[in-house]
Nucleic acid binder design. Sequence first.
DNA 1: CAGCTTATTGCGAATTATTTGCAAATGGCA
DNA 2: TGCCATTTGCAAATAATTCGCAATAAGCTG
Lengths: 151, 151
Amino acid sequence: MTLIQQVTERVRGEGGRMTGQRRLILEALENLSGHPTAEEIYARVRKEDAEINLSTVYRTLRWLEESGFVAPRWFEDDHRRERFDAAGSSDDHFHFRCRTCNQIIEFDDPNLEIVKQAFETQYLAEVENITLVLYGLCARCKIQPNQAQGA
Amino acid sequence: MTLIQQVTERVRGEGGRMTGQRRLILEALENLSGHPTAEEIYARVRKEDAEINLSTVYRTLRWLEESGFVAPRWFEDDHRRERFDAAGSSDDHFHFRCRTCNQIIEFDDPNLEIVKQAFETQYLAEVENITLVLYGLCARCKIQPNQAQGA
DNA sequence: CAGCTTATTGCGAATTATTTGCAAATGGCA
DNA sequence: TGCCATTTGCAAATAATTCGCAATAAGCTG
Ligand SMILES: [Mn+2]
Ligand SMILES: [Mn+2]
Ligand SMILES: [Zn+2]
Ligand SMILES: [Zn+2]
């Protein structure tokens, strides 16, 4: 089932409406690679609907966030800009961000489970969530002096 | 050698001046526990010097940041507020933040070195920096319904 | 299909954290 | 003590995101 279908089902179930704007924003989320900002989503959606407003984009993203369809992310390089992860909040994974081309690579690693458990045991704490970001140079930028992309 | 002495040495070496404001901000950094915000440092410093301006605090923190004496940190709970880590940029460590009392625990774990190397090998990338934050409940908040502190 | 109800949108103004320009103040050497 | 470049205080600027509200439009219902 596609993202739009899932969201439609959800919104209808709670007496909400599936509007053209919401459909366009969902399409943008599916098609834009990486972790786009609200502005990037706005720019994309604007191609189809020149009248859409940036605040609608924000509002829709917040609403998708509440339902767990997108997850907010911040990276240190541009820490003020919120980015939106279409992977949603249930699928947890970690990120690598290239300092040169700003590319983001998603990955997972079973060692984090060990780190988590070690911490919980030592501090008698309960870890609910893990944010791990590696910063550095991707394979391409390591050799080739590359032009920056994105933010 | 104390932080103030280190910074004095550095600033004098580059033709700068060690002002009363800078001294107070450094004292605040040494005395405030955790990872204070600019406002928190400002509030503390204001007790000694009622005339000091918030922009001086920011400017001084940025300057300390450039020299590696403090490191900026952002936590997801209040992601817009920059926090300042007096540990500096050379000492790398990771953080746990309690969702209830906002306490921050610093820790290290050799497994992160393994995660880093595994990533580098798999993606032929070069990792320069690692940010890891665990979110959850500290030992105290796990049992006792606690009142929030800080931001 | 037209009318109705109310969820959603567009718009502009507000908010919040941080930065900046500039004239006045002051640290520290002579 | 005087000089002058470095810092400061202040007020205004920035930038990302949010909010209030009147206008619009989903999606029933008849
Ligand atoms: Mn992701
Ligand atoms: Mn720290
Ligand atoms: Zn790259
Ligand atoms: Zn706690």
